[in-house]
Design a binder for these strands. Structure first.
Lengths: 188, 188
DNA sequence: AGGGTGATGACACCAGGTGCCATCACTTCT
DNA sequence: AGAAGTGATGGCACCTGGTGTCATCACCCT
């Protein structure tokens, strides 16, 4: 027998998500989350930096997928095409978890403090993409702008994908957004 | 004689900025800010939603400038050109306050919680630009993407402008970023 | 057997943020 | 003039997120 129940972290995450769903994010205290997981408040903060972070534990995974996909693109691919390859690498993961992703997104958009956290995760992602582009020999200025363009494409496509009515795949929405961006930037 | 000293809000803002400069953002408590302004903690929170917000009181002004400049662009201007006109309308204001803006930016980039707040202000700005484009008859999908492109241009240009060494005007940096974005999006 | 080690509990504490009521100068109504 | 209303503030209790610190105790290694 283990001294502690295993997977304290995932138990905390599950308890948090359940409680956020049952009572709402802001009417859930960290003490309640810990109690449901059979732990204490102090232990919660050993596993997650703060109350918001428990909703964003997947963001490293997302970043990893994108950067890996980007690095695997043909060396002669244009920078933005390489970024699109990175984004494509995430599409399957999202399409498999559509229900979860949209529910989570609904919680986030309802709470400004969670939106803030999401935005800074996207900023981290932008930085990671920029670095990956630099590895491919893209100059700093272009790398940053390409990364921002790619993240903007992702944001727009994800926003449409995560609305209840939508039926298209994330991949097709991302490529549609990429074409729209081309039109928008050219047409002037 | 007035019952209270006038301009409580600006006194609080000045006290906060001074203290952030003297002791750093995170070693300044709201009680200290209020005390220096001759007020109480409770009153601080009547004027600012939270401790971070006092650094972002200018963001409505920025939003107003951009939206007004955008609306004043020729009706037949391409959407992104109209956004550029809005951004141009802010350049003079920034160039006049370069020292203040860079100092403020240094505080923000040193504290993730302030970055989060800045990012959500930019998101608000994106929404406002999108709405202003819709007023000009731009379709929703294009309007949002154009707004994101415009904000990305602003972010990149402002980032360069706010670095200690830079000497170019914000306007020229923004237009350079716009050209770079065109190249980046085309080249693929 | 005995000494690390690492996750946890327990507890005190700080600071941000809110609800609630009192206060009091100034204004407006009668 | 006097009464009633208004609006910004003070004061205070309170909650909650978050941290520092030390004790605990099962497991591992020698």
């Amino acid at each position: 027998m283990a001294r502690w129940q295993p997977d304290a972290r995932s138990r905390l995450a599950k308890a948090a998500l359940d409680l956020y769903g049952e009572h709402g994010y802001d009417r859930t205290t960290v003490a309640e989350i810990a109690e449901r997981a059979g732990l204490t408040k102090r232990t919660f903060f050993r596993h997650f930096a703060d109350k918001r972070e428990v909703l964003f534990s997947g963001s490293e995974e997302l970043e990893r997928l994108i950067v890996t996909g980007l690095a695997a693109a043909p060396p002669d691919a244009a920078p933005l095409d390489a970024v699109m390859a990175g984004l494509d690498a995430t599409a399957a993961m999202f399409d498999e978890r559509r229900a979860f992703a949209t529910a989570r997104q609904a919680v986030i958009t309802a709470h400004p403090e969670l939106q803030e956290r999401e935005l800074i995760k996207l900023e981290r992602l932008t930085t990671a993409i920029t670095a990956a582009l630099r590895e491919r020999g893209v100059a700093e200025a272009r790398a940053l702008l390409t990364a921002r363009a790619g993240v903007a494409i992702f944001q727009v496509a994800f926003g449409r994908w995560a609305t209840p009515g939508a039926r298209q795949t994330l991949r097709s929405l991302m490529h549609a957004a990429r074409r729209d961006l081309r039109d928008v930037v050219l047409d002037g």
